[in-house]
């Protein structure tokens, strides 16, 4: 589900036509609020006879809100309605796929990566082409989605929430140190043997 939401988010962002500055003052307009409220809403429906709640993850919605808030002005009512309509269409694709095969639902997660290839491709193609229209670039490497603006600044990523924050283990350095130590030991042994120390 994470990847599906990421691509949908990318697509809906580019439907809005607005210029933005990467570091700028911003306001959060009523139309943008309408979009964010919709993104944060939930819908429950039956999948395989069981209730399934469709909800875009909060960390994705927050990135949308942060993006809107940091841009000047507001999007138009028509753009807001278009974004909402587009997301609803995306949700319909998910519903259709799950209705056809409930096995795509793994617990609380939609197994998007295993959706039919054509369905996945349709969603990705839509997102990428739509991003290009307003200068956003969506990159999907098969695992992660990153959306950047024209200046190359990241405006969205679906990376893990909790990062690895431990000291980096430099394997190359360790091998080099061990190799160096081994050479020293061999050299010392050789010298000791030559000196008939043992």
């Amino acid at each position: 589900m994470k990847k599906f939401f990421a691509v949908l988010f990318a697509a809906l962002l580019i439907v809005s036509v607005f210029a933005f500055s990467a570091s700028a003052a911003g306001t959060f307009g009523a139309n943008e609020q309408k979009v964010v409220d919709f993104l944060g809403s939930k819908e429950t429906y039956k999948v395989g006879g069981k209730d399934f709640t469709f909800k875009i993850p909060t960390n994705y919605v927050n990135q949308a809100k942060a993006f809107f808030a940091s841009t000047e002005g507001d999007i138009t009512p028509a753009d807001a309605d278009a974004i909402i309509a587009f997301v609803k269409e995306g949700e319909a694709l998910v519903k259709e796929t799950l209705s056809a095969d409930a096995s795509y639902l793994k617990g609380d997660t939609v197994d998007f990566v295993h959706f039919p290839t054509a369905t996945r491709k349709a969603i990705l193609d839509k997102g990428q082409k739509a991003c290009k229209v307003v200068g956003l670039t969506l990159v999907f490497d098969g695992e992660h989605v990153v959306i950047t603006n024209a200046a190359g600044a990241t405006v969205f990523d679906d990376d893990a929430i909790i990062k690895t924050t431990g000291a980096e283990f430099n394997y190359t350095a360790l091998i080099a140190v061990c190799a160096g130590f081994a050479l020293v030991v061999v050299g010392a042994l050789g010298a000791a043997k030559k000196a008939r120390l043992f």
Binding site: N59, N62, D157, K163, T165
Partner: peptide, 30 residues
């Protein structure tokens, strides 16, 4: 993360009235 402590962009800006998530390396600033 090599340069300082870092805010996860999936949380809102400080002062937004919700959770802010910040991380840092255990062998440097934290």
């Amino acid at each position: 993360l090599k340069k300082g402590v870092c805010q996860y962009i999936g949380t809102m800006f400080i002062g937004s009235g919700t959770t802010v998530l910040i991380s840092g390396h255990n062998n440097t600033y934290l």
